[in-house]
Design a protein around this nucleic acid. Structure first.
Length: 224
DNA sequence: GCATTAACAGCCG
DNA sequence: CGGCTGTTAATGC
């Protein structure tokens, strides 16, 4: 259980809830820290809670036939995920791994469903989030085949700076170039070259262990 | 040609 | 030292 103040700090969606709803939400959440490389859950697990990223970086991934890591999505602080699995009462479809030391908020299934049944604001948030993701995945499908490596890197970065999915993110992201490469399906060396190209075009700045975004629209539309 | 893997040196905590 | 970064060389589609 976390305090009301803490909930409002780590969950942007909670700001639109009524007092009673906030009470239900906060009493159903615990926080937990995971060290780098730890699995939060494996593909096929019945992992119950709805998950929020308080701090750090999480990846949804699986292992392909030839043994390579394939990442489907990266989740940073401010993002909440797992509602699809909960609503469909399914097993997890992907491995959830933390890319570095990460603090997560875990909401019990009971609290999630209470909010789902009683809170208009919570449902509005869920629809908005699912809609945003759908739009992103359609864009990924539409342009994914024609974009070169640099374009795909740009798009993946833009995803991580989506204000609907990751509110309050600012313009800085702590992520290694290797992680970005895994996220995009590009080798570390090519990722490095693409980042330099994007830096030369003033779309971002490279820092050690991270990047600073200078032009989010430019990244989101890169290569179109 | 473009991207990949392998290898290595430099840098930083 | 160990992890991350920037480069180059050899190889593959």
């Amino acid at each position: 259980m976390i305090s009301r103040e803490r909930l409002l700090e780590i969950a942007f969606w909670a700001r639109d809830l009524t007092d009673k709803e906030i009470e239900q939400a906060r009493s159903g959440i615990i926080e937990k820290t995971y060290t780098s490389g730890t699995y939060v859950c494996h593909r096929g697990d019945r992992f119950e809670p709805w998950v929020g990223v308080v701090d750090g970086l999480v990846r949804m991934s699986t292992v392909s036939k030839d043994g390579k890591d394939v990442i489907f999505a990266g989740l940073r602080a401010g993002g909440w995920f797992g509602e699809g699995t909960l609503l469909k009462n399914e097993a997890r479809r992907y491995d959830i791994v933390v890319a570095r030391e990460t603090r997560l908020a875990l909401m019990s299934k009971a609290a999630f469903f209470w909010l789902f049944e009683h809170s208009v604001a919570f449902n509005r948030y869920l629809v908005r989030q699912i809609n945003e993701r759908l739009g992103q995945f359609i864009a990924l499908f539409e342009y994914g085949r024609t974009l070169d490596a640099t374009g795909r890197i740009a798009r993946n970065i833009a995803w991580l700076f989506n204000p609907v999915l990751f509110p309050g993110a600012g313009n800085h992201l702590e992520i290694t170039q290797e992680e970005l490469g895994l996220l995009t399906g590009v080798s570390r060396q090519a990722t490095n070259q693409s980042l330099r190209t994007l830096e030369q075009q003033k779309l971002l700045r490279i820092e050690r262990n991270g990047i600073v975004v200078l032009d989010i629209e430019g990244l989101a539309n890169y290569g179109e």
